[in-house]
Every structure is written in C-alpha cells, then in structure tokens.
C-alpha cells in the first residue's frame, strides 16, 4: 500500500502552515520540547481514531446530526487521552493543563473528520488522520526545539548551551518562552513554506 498520497500534510498541505488550523495550541504548548511532543502525539492519536471511527459509521450517521456525533466521538477520545496522561505522564499532563481538553476544539480534527472521513473508507481515513497529526506535530516539535534551546538553553530539559557561554555573558532570550515568540516563528515558517512555491 502506498502512503505517498497521504504525505501532503507534512509539506505543501500542512494543517498549521498552509491551512492555518490549530495555531492557538501551537503557540501555547511549545515553550519546551517535551509538552510540544506529547501534545503532537495526543493530537495525532485523536485525529487518527476520530477519523477511523467516523469513517466506520459514515453510512449510518444521519447528516442532520453529524456534527453532534463527531463532537461526541472526538470529546470521548480526548477525555480518554487526558485520563491516560493523568495516570502515566502526570508531570506532562500538568504542563499541558487546559490544552489537553482544548484538543476537542482543535480545528484540524473536526476539519479532517468533516472533509475526509465522512466520505472515505476507514483505512485511508485513518492514515489521513495520522499524517495530518504528524504535519501538526512537525510544526510543534520544530517550535518547541527552537524555543527551548534559545529560551531556556536546554532541550528536553537537558542543558544544551554550555555553561561557559553563560560565563562569557551569554543570556537566554526571554522572549522565546513567551507566546509572541511562537507567533513570530510560525510566521517565519509560513513565509519559508510559501516562498518555496
């Protein structure tokens, strides 16, 4: 089975950079790499499985209440993710705090369910969800990496910038840990993406 046709979200059809979806959470949870990574993973799981479930049900869902059904499925998956995080990744779940719950409102998920899963068979829908989640994750991980290195001098909580730099007067960029820096970085990434043609 060829996965090539699903690769769009990683590049020229990226949900964040091209479709401008899910920007809110990309600004909020990317001050460090670890929460960004967990958030990306959570969103990927939720998009993949909501796509899969909705696609399996697509011929039985009455169109008039399809949005309600989509929301019920997505909300259930998100609460499951939240519960699992609280049980096994407690510190990360505290870091992500309200943003786990807000995955429900992430436009990428609803967008893919509505635009793809409702009219395509289960397996393609599942892969579509996976790659859209990964496309979102790619942006989050890039932002998290840049912001943590320049904002805190660390990566995944490990010191990256040598202490000798600090002794010679190097300072962490305080702007990088604040949401505006993420907005500027997303802007730069969109610029690069568009100028590639």
């Amino acid at each position: 089975m060829s996965l090539k046709k699903y690769l769009g979200p990683l590049n020229k059809d990226n949900p964040v950079l091209v479709q401008i979806l899910g920007v809110c959470s990309s600004l909020a949870v990317t001050a460090q790499l670890k929460p960004a990574f967990v958030m990306a993973l959570s969103v990927t799981i939720v998009t993949a499985f909501s796509n899969l479930i909705i696609s399996l049900l697509r011929n039985t869902i009455p169109p008039r209440i399809r949005i309600i059904v989509q929301l019920v499925v997505i909300a259930t998956l998100v609460i499951l993710v939240d519960q699992v995080l609280q049980a096994f990744f407690y510190d990360v779940s505290k870091m992500l705090s309200v943003f786990v719950g807000l995955i429900i409102t992430n436009c990428i998920i609803m967008g893919r369910v509505e635009a793809y899963a409702l009219s395509n068979p289960p397996m393609p829908s599942f892969w579509d969800g996976i790659f859209n989640g990964l496309g979102y994750g790619l942006v989050l991980v890039t932002l998290g990496t840049v912001r943590e290195i320049f904002g805190s001098g660390t990566l995944w909580k490990m010191q990256i910038i040598p202490t000798s730099f600090y002794e010679h007067g190097y300072l962490n960029n305080g702007l990088m840990v604040l949401p505006p820096a993420a907005l500027i970085l997303v802007g730069v990434m969109i610029w690069v993406q568009r100028s590639k043609g």
Binding site: T60, I61, P62, R64, I65, I68, V69, V72, V73
Partner: peptide, 11 residues
C-alpha cells in the same frame, strides 16, 4: 426515530 435511537446508542 432513527436519529434519536442512533444518538442515544452512541452517547
């Protein structure tokens, strides 16, 4: 009728 039954089961 179908709509009510369907959403009840899902929920």
């Amino acid at each position: 009728r179908y709509i009510f039954i369907f959403i009840t089961i899902i929920v």
